[in-house]
Design a binder for these strands. Structure first.
Lengths: 101, 101
DNA sequence: GTGGCATATAGCCATATTGCTATTTTGCCA
DNA sequence: TGGCAAAATAGCAATATGGCTATATGCCAC
């Protein structure tokens, strides 16, 4: 069990699963951004907070949980933080889940 | 997201992952039982509590969480409850995780 | 430098999780 | 029937989680 439980804990939340789902296809779920490309750089906090229907700090915390688990990568540009899926890590986690469950 | 979060929450615990792992090969992890076959019927609560190093009620609760999530099936024989993996359901959950994460 | 915007952090509350001990329930069997 | 053994439930404590508001930080534009 290579530290699988913490990753599963990060995944075990409806809102965080939604975020991961939306970030699969950012352009179909979020409006264009000025200072960062939705696909190349990721999606900013406020868009996600609005779409989730929670406050900005709450969304920030969810994004942090996903980032700490390695599922998302943050990229700071100017005053924004853009989040995108780390597909390589996610694929690895899928393999580990399939292997250990 | 077909109610994936509750299943992931059931999985997001080291002790419960250990239980699932041990139940893959009950005969290599547990001594023989008199009233139920380790493979056909499952493994009883006390064996699992002992091996986990927790009290009987704590193990009972972990087993219940896994059973409620559909990962284990309980079988009552005499005064024992034997637990075994529900492989069909686990395979389905693996597919859903791979599909939605 | 000041003001303003996007994020992050701090502090707080309500609820959930994980563990325990004590008790109750269930089912054998002498 | 009474007593024993396994399991489940109840009740309790400690900690974690998920949400909020308020505040701090970082970064531009002026």
């Amino acid at each position: 069990m290579p530290q699988l439980a913490p990753v599963l804990r990060a995944l075990a939340n409806d809102k965080r699963l939604l975020i991961l789902e939306w970030l699969k296809h950012p352009r179909t779920h979020f409006p264009p951004q000025v200072d960062g490309d939705l696909v190349r750089d990721g999606v900013c906090n406020v868009f996600i907070a609005n779409k989730l229907g929670v406050s900005q700090p709450t969304a920030s915390e969810h994004l942090n949980v996903l980032a700490r688990a390695g599922l998302l990568r943050p990229k700071r540009i100017k005053q924004w933080t853009f989040y995108k899926r780390d597909e390589a890590r996610i694929a690895q986690i899928k393999r580990e889940i399939a292997r250990w469950i």
